[in-house]
Nucleic acid binder design. Structure first.
Length: 926
RNA sequence: GGGCGGUUAGCUCAGUGGGAGAGCAUCGGCCUUACAAGCCGAGGGUCACAGGUUCAAAUCCUGUACCGCCCACCA
């Protein structure tokens, strides 16, 4: 039975072969002595795989596969997030397309509908993740709305309530008039846009032609103004403080107040105060006891009931949305001659992060988490190193955010999500439960902040205060991020005390993008510490965002989205994964370039072909070398060398992956596999394999097999498919075992031999030099050449060692540099009709051919002399500097001295070659 | 307004105190029996700019310019 691989690697064919056979290895091993656990950042059920997911999950999979091979009991929990607002929006759009809406359906039917949608399409992203090759334990897949996690959410809510960390209050919150729900501060995105600054005259009461001019970007909110504020020390306005202004259009009288918040430099120095629709104004209003007038309803349309002093004007305004109202206000002001001027003005407008509708500050009762008592322990955990943020730079952002954190508004006025486990009694609480009339709002009741909720895990049957049986649940649902915050332990079974929770909490590492550092990571820390009494993860590895070639964030609207599945289909999943790893330098953006993927596809192909070469040469009896401490001195030089380099690579690879330096990991393996193993070792091994070194070819075959196998193991975490395919063929196991569960390479005592590396580097330099000379001499690659070697080392022993090494390695030099004969000349008898190359103290002479362009060569050599002179001068200057000799480290000085000597030698020999060349030139002319 | 990061070869980016690197692209030569998705060779950089610290700076400090990101309630 011989090992065989097809002539070309077909990723499409191979990739479908392995995933289902792997799944049994995705579960943690029994015993779980070295637990290593991670939770996937749950993608939204609405999502499909994008570059961000691909990067995030590739990095996680690399870690998991590495740790699993390295003997850990690995648990990687997958799952999805119910994504409240996003999902509700998707289903609502579907309903709209069918000419209906959620109000017509009613809450219960609507939620049914969402579940149905989720059952149909919610697993799309999971199958896409599988195509990427991720090794999650699918038997433990979770969904933030499944039964267990919903219980965890209620448990968390009840505990926070009992500990006094939850409260209801009516305040100005961020309201999305399209989603018709409150949003947390963090869910508002600020986008620069060009607007206007309107200067409006507010007539002073009792004066016929005097007014105060205010500047505003939102003229429509003037309908809800309850004051105008000026700076207390602003001399221009001293005389107006305390007087009344007549609010244009409405006619309401409002006071001029003094408040230090006002910047006299800005606009006119007079600020209109709308406590009902502006956060600053709200604060100022609180300080001065101003009325709060909510002029809008929940769709941000003018609400008639807001205006006590309704005039004729109100008919035209009622029901108009914010932007229409703005136009009307401006028109009306113009008509009354109260619009002084309009200036263009750039401002950052808050938008809903889900639908990009402009946010309206809106006063409603909401649930809040008292956040400071939770934030402090989380900061402490990062400060004292119980949680390590990698790269460290992000810790600054984390602290900055946590220090300024405000209470978290967690109630949402949507239907898809975890309904808040709070109930109200209609008997004893009736005074606080206003039946909603007039304006359209989504809930049947408006529950005043004074209402006393019954908070518990399950619905109560009777009121524990009055024994009433008419209870109803708070209609609001929780912020999706509330359930996400519990993810590291809710997925392990919390609040039940499961064995998994005991073994795998805290998780080892959380891998995520920085875009959800505050949304998610910080909140997991707070909730984990509060509810579990321990950090949710030891390390947080924050990776870059994937951008397009111009560095732009990929988005559908920009049309610059690259579909990972498309890339995987064209270049192969392994090539794609390798690209992501290679580009993911810490703290940087990843600019996705397709030519990189194509380049790494070539790498996959290279590995494939190196394997084919190996297979061609292996016999069935060729076992790999023992990986125990063993002597490899009996092997030939090339064999010893490749094992030494392999050992170095193993060491570097482990260091890189342990430090989350995925790009270093990829580059070390790329460098070793392609340039050392393929370019040099395979070429060198051909001699030995053919018995041309008078050796036992079997030893080399064993080395070949060993190195290929170790390379496959090292590469497997990044490139699972191709490595499995080759490993299966190499070991002829036909799917009965998997590379996934082989031990990850370890350093082997005795393999690393620096002196062997020095020797082989010398030989490869000699070969390079000869190739270089051939190329300059225009000797065709196929034509063998004769060379002369002179070693000019002044130390006789060293000279003999060098010459012995050259003689020993002569077959290799002859083969790799196409040399027909090597002549060892004495230093006195340097050949005349030749050009020279120098490696250390060794000079290589190649007889010149007619074809050679001597002038080009002369230019090149002169240039080289110049370069060496510059370097030499620098070294000599350093060595002449007393300060340098006094203060520099001894090894640096030694190195510099050695360098100077080498450069002197080199410049002498290059000058000699130059001289010879010039002689040749004059000969040619004759 | 505050904070963070970037500026290194034509392009994309590594490199954080002691001789400027990689991949791709370019140029020249090769179908050498694993691989033309390949092999061999070559060219190419005052490491943004200006100061400073140091025996020594791409690397540390200060400032400037440009680019990017995050946070923020100046209407």
């Amino acid at each position: 039975m011989t090992r065989q691989l097809d002539k070309t690697y077909s990723h499409k064919e191979v990739e479908v072969r392995w995933y289902s056979r792997w799944e049994k290895y995705f579960r943690p091993s029994d015993g779980a002595t070295h637990p290593f656990s991670m939770v996937i950042p749950p993608p939204n059920v609405t999502g499909s795989l994008h570059m961000g997911h691909a990067l995030n999950n590739t990095l996680q999979d690399i870690l998991c596969r590495y740790k699993r091979m390295d003997g850990c009991s690995v648990l990687w929990i997958p799952g999805t997030d119910h994504a409240g607002i996003a999902t509700q929006n998707v289903v609502e759009r579907q309903l709209a397309a069918q000419g209906t809406d959620r109000a017509q359906l009613g809450r219960e039917k609507f939620i049914e509908r969402v579940w149905k949608w989720r059952a149909e399409t919610g697993s799309t992203i999971l199958s896409q993740l599988k195509a990427l090759g991720v090794s999650c334990d699918w038997s433990r897949e979770r969904f933030t709305m499944d039964e267990g996690l919903s219980l965890a959410v209620r448990e968390a809510f009840v505990r926070l309530w009992r500990d006094g960390l939850l409260y209801r209050a009516e305040r100005l919150i961020n309201w999305c008039p399209r989603c018709k729900t409150a949003l947390a501060d963090i869910e508002v995105v600020h986008e620069e846009s060009s607007g206007h600054l309107w200067h409006i005259r507010y007539p002073i009461e009792g004066e016929s032609s005097e007014w105060l001019v205010v500047a505003t970007t939102r003229p429509e909110t003037m309908l809800g103004d309850t004051a105008v504020a000026v700076h207390p020390e602003d001399e221009r306005y001293q005389k107006f403080i305390g007087r009344k202004l007549r609010l244009p259009i409405v006619g309401r009288l409002i006071p001029v107040i003094a408040d230090p918040y006002v910047d006299p430099e800005f606009g006119t120095g007079a600020l209109k105060i709308t406590p009902g629709h502006d956060f600053n104004d709200f604060e100022i209003g609180q300080r001065h006891g101003l009325d709060i007038i909510g002029i809008f309803d929940d769709e941000a349309k003018i609400r008639a009931s807001a205006f006590a002093e309704a005039g004729e004007w109100l008919k035209r305004y009622t029901g108009k949305d914010r932007f229409d109202a703005r136009k009307l206000v401006v028109e009306d002001l113009k008509e009354e001659g109260l619009l002084e001027k309009v200036e263009p003005y750039g401002l950052a407008i808050g938008q809903c992060y889900r639908c990009h509708t402009v946010i309206e500050p809106y006063s409603t009762p909401q649930w809040f988490v008292k956040i400071k008592p939770l934030a402090e322990p989380a900061m402490q955990a990062v400060r004292d190193g119980r949680i390590k943020i990698i790269p460290e730079g992000w810790a600054n952002s984390f602290f900055a955010w946590m220090e300024n954190i405000k209470d978290w508004c967690i109630s949402r006025q949507i239907w898809w999500g975890h309904q808040i486990p709070a109930w109200y009694c209609t008997s004893c609480e009736s005074v606080h439960l206003r039946r909603n009339g007039g304006d359209s709002t989504s809930s049947e009741f408006v529950i005043s902040p004074e209402a006393k909720p019954i908070v518990q895990l399950e619905a109560p049957s009777t009121c524990d205060r009055c024994g009433g049986t008419q209870l109803f649940q708070d209609p609001d649902v929780l912020d999706t991020w509330f359930s996400s915050a519990l993810w590291p332990f809710s997925t392990l079974g919390w609040p039940k005390e499961t064995p998994e929770l005991k073994t795998f909490y805290p998780t080892a590492v959380l891998v995520t993008g920085f875009d959800i550092l505050f949304f998610w990571v910080a909140r997991m820390m707070m909730m984990g510490l509060k509810l579990m009494g321990d950090v949710p993860f030891r390390d947080v590895y924050i990776h870059a965002l994937v951008r397009d070639l111009e560095g732009q964030k990929m988005s559908k609207s920009k049309g610059n989205v690259i579909d990972p599945l498309d890339v995987m289909g064209r270049y192969g999943t392994d090539a794609f994964r390798f690209t992501l790893a290679a580009l993911s330098a810490m703290g940087r953006d990843v600019k996705m370039a397709e030519d990189r993927v194509s380049g790494y596809q070539n790498f996959v192909n290279k590995l494939w072909n190196a394997s084919r070469f190996t297979f061609m040469n292996l016999d069935d009896q060729d076992e790999p070398l023992s990986l125990e401490n063993n002597s490899i001195k009996q092997l030939n030089l090339a064999d010893q060398w490749i094992l030494s380099r392999l050992d170095y690579t193993v060491d570097q690879a482990r260091k890189a992956i342990d430090g989350y330096r995925f790009n270093d990991y990829a580059h070390h393996l790329y460098q070793f596999t392609w340039h050392e193993f393929c370019d040099w070792y395979l070429e060198m091994s051909k001699l030995s394999l053919g018995g041309k070194l008078g050796n036992e070819p079997q030893k080399t075959r064993q080395v070949l097999r060993t190195v290929l196998e170790q390379v496959l193991l090292l590469l497997h975490p990044i490139m699972p498919f191709v490595t499995e395919e080759i490993w299966q063929a190499l070991n002829q196991v036909d799917g009965k075992s998997s590379i996934m569960v082989q031990p990850y390479p370890k350093s082997v005592a005795g393999w690393r031999q620096p002196e062997v590396e020095v020797q082989v580097t010398f030989i490869t330099e000699i070969i390079r030099t000869i190739r270089n000379l051939r190329s300059e001499c225009n000797v065709s690659p196929g034509r063998p050449v004769e060379i002369f070697v002179v070693d000019g080392d002044r130390d006789a022993i060293r000279r003999e060692q060098t010459l012995k090494l050259l003689r020993d390695q002569e077959p290799t030099i002859r083969s790799l540099a196409r040399v027909s004969s090597v002549e060892y000349a004495g230093s006195k008898s340097r050949p005349k009709n030749a050009i020279t190359g120098v490696v250390g103290s060794t000079e290589i002479f190649l007889p010149v051919s007619e074809a050679m362009n001597l002038e080009e060569e002369e230019t090149r050599l002169s240039k080289e002399v110049g370069k060496i002179q510059v370097e030499l001068a620098r070294a000599q200057k350093k060595l002449a500097n007393e300060e340098f000799l006094k203060k520099a480290k001894p090894e640096v000085i030694d190195k510099e001295k050695k360098k100077a000597v080498e450069l002197e030698d080199k410049i002498r020999t290059v000058n000699l070659s130059l001289k010879r060349l010039q002689e040749l030139q004059s000969q040619r002319k004759d």
